[in-house]
Simulated assay, not measured.
Amino acid sequence: MKTKLHFLTFALLFAIGIQAQTVSVTSTLPSTIETGDALDFTVDYTTDSNNYNLIVRFYEDNGGTITRYGTDQSFKSIPSNTSGTEVLNINAPLVAASNYIARIFIENSTDYSKFYAADIPFTVTAKVVSVKDTYLFDTDGDLEGWDTGSIGAPNITATVAGGAMVINTGSGSWDVGYVEQTEYKLDPAMHTYLDITYKNLSKPNENNQIELDWITSGTTRSSRVIIPIETSGWNDPMDFTTVTYDLGANPEWAGADATYFRIYVSRAEGGPKSKDIEISSIVFNNPTLSTNNLSANIENVSIYPNPFTDSFSYKFNGDLSDSVSVELFSIVGKKINTNNTFNGNSGIVDTAQLNKGIYLVRISSGKVTETRKLIKK
Rank of each mutant, 00 (worst) to 15 (best):
I336Y: 06
K199P: 00
G366D: 03
A258M: 03
T22D: 05
V176I: 13
F137D: 03
Y116R: 07
N285I: 05
S217Q: 14
S266I: 05
E370H: 10
F240M: 07
V23M: 11
A38T: 15
H191R: 10
A96C: 02
D119H: 04
F10Q: 10
Y260K: 05
K76W: 01
I66R: 04
V95C: 03
M238E: 11
K4A: 11
V95T: 13
T244M: 10
I375V: 15
T28F: 12
K132V: 03
F284W: 11
A15Q: 13
A118S: 12
L320A: 07
D147Y: 09
Q21P: 05
T42Y: 09
D310N: 15
A20R: 13
D138A: 08
G141A: 01
T148H: 00
N306W: 08
S49C: 04
N99Q: 09
R57L: 03
K334S: 04
T32D: 06
A296N: 15
V166Y: 00
L143W: 01
L186T: 05
F329H: 05
H6W: 08
F137A: 02
L143R: 12
D322T: 14
I363C: 02
T351H: 03
K76F: 04
T157W: 10
I66C: 04
P79G: 08
R103L: 08
S274I: 01
D133S: 15
T47G: 07
I16G: 04
D142L: 04
S222M: 15
A256M: 06
I282W: 07
P272W: 06
Q353P: 00
A189E: 12
S49L: 12
F261P: 02
A96I: 14
V43L: 14
F312G: 02
G63I: 08
L360P: 00
I66P: 01
Y135A: 07
I156P: 02
I151A: 01
A352R: 11
N50V: 03
G271S: 00
S325W: 06
P287D: 11
I331H: 04
P237G: 04
E180P: 03
F261A: 01
G36K: 02
I215Y: 06
N306S: 00
P307F: 05
I16F: 09
R362W: 05
N355G: 09
G64Q: 09
V131E: 09
A15W: 02
V179L: 07
T46D: 00
L194H: 02
D37Y: 14
D276G: 00
Y100V: 02
F10R: 10
P93F: 05
M165A: 09
